[in-house]
Design a binder for these strands. Structure first.
Lengths: 191, 191
DNA sequence: GTCATATTAGATAGATCGATCTAGCGACGA
DNA sequence: TCGTCGCTAGATCGATCTATCTAATATGAC
């Protein structure tokens, strides 16, 4: 039986880290947002902020992994449509949240790439899992192994970058434009 | 006559923000790195950390803009080669710096997109200037206006995303793979 | 040389940071 | 009813954060 408080702390962390980064978020703010008692934080996460951060990253990563599958399954094997759908989903998420909900990992990844090895590693693992999920679907669409891995990396790169540009510009154009071109490129690469 | 101390503060800020983000960098650390006296910081930047951050972002942005031109000019009008060169330059910068020198803007952009309007705006302006620089070269290569703008956004998106993945993974593969596919895509789009 | 301005020096304020600590609450089995 | 143990409560520590302040010191014009 997983603790409810623990989950709330994890999800509050994930959301706050996504919006304002790891260093920019205080533990007090996390307990407030998660409506969790201060004493519980170090009970559930004796490793402190770093452990909480690493677990929050993994939590967000897993959640998005499920979302990938939902989008892929909803497109009935049409990989190109999946790509379009995913970019479109982010367009809507950005608009709905007032430009707050970008990539739940990227901010922490960049902040901690040179400052915390455990956090960097957690972020790297999430990115790998996402690329594998995309590559798996590409292989299912008939793309050879190595080429599928490369295309998956390419799609994720373009997606992450477009999210950075769109969120910073407060304008979904980058996501729409990039999504369109990436979808075309992928279509041409399918057998 | 621009103050030397002021420039050192600006460049130290730019480098530290690039490595560890805006919130993760203290003003004391900046004065130490820039070998500048503490009293000078608020003399040159009375607006405090936010002003220093915004100016550092603009400073980095302008520096990269010049680098764009150097790379473009070095490729003798061969835009596809410019793209490859630029991805390759980042590969080398990442390796040389021990995975510290990624995009000088992206970290701050993500951190401050929802927390500081002046900083977000400074980052957005840099990204716009970069896209315009790329688009100008695409037009020079014969690509129509609107299409050039879209392709420029696409190239920058893919580049930024690949930098995030490579820096996080401590592996230049994402930059190499993405750079290759983007170069191919751009080549096919040229007249 | 004199005066005004630009810059440096560094102590200090006041807030907040992550982390630790002890005390106590409350549910549940014996 | 009594313990036990998971969890909560929140004071508190030392460090660090940004920002402000007053003096002292260069610097340059005249």
């Amino acid at each position: 039986m997983t603790s409810d408080t623990r989950t709330r702390l994890l999800e509050a962390s994930a959301q706050l880290f996504r919006e304002q980064g790891y260093a920019g978020t205080g533990l007090k703010q996390i307990t407030a947002a998660g409506e969790a008692p201060w004493g519980s934080l170090y009970h559930f996460f004796p490793g402190g902020k770093e452990q909480l951060g690493a677990e929050a990253v993994a939590h967000s990563g897993g959640r998005y992994l499920k979302l990938f599958d939902i989008v892929f399954d909803g497109a009935d094997g049409d990989f190109v449509r999946s790509v379009r759908d995913f970019f479109q989903l982010s367009v809507e998420a950005l608009e709905r949240s007032g430009w707050a909900d970008g990539c739940p990992i990227a901010t922490v990844a960049l902040e901690t790439a040179s400052t915390s090895e455990p956090l960097r590693h957690a972020c790297a693992e999430v990115f790998v899992s996402w690329q594998e999920a995309i590559a798996r679907r590409l292989r299912a669409a008939g793309v050879p192994d190595g080429r599928a891995a490369d295309l998956a990396t390419y799609v994720l790169s373009a997606f992450e970058g477009a999210l950075v540009l769109s969120r910073t510009a407060h304008d979904t154009r980058a996501l729409k434009v990039t999504g369109g071109i990436v979808a075309e490129t992928v279509r041409a690469a399918l057998p």
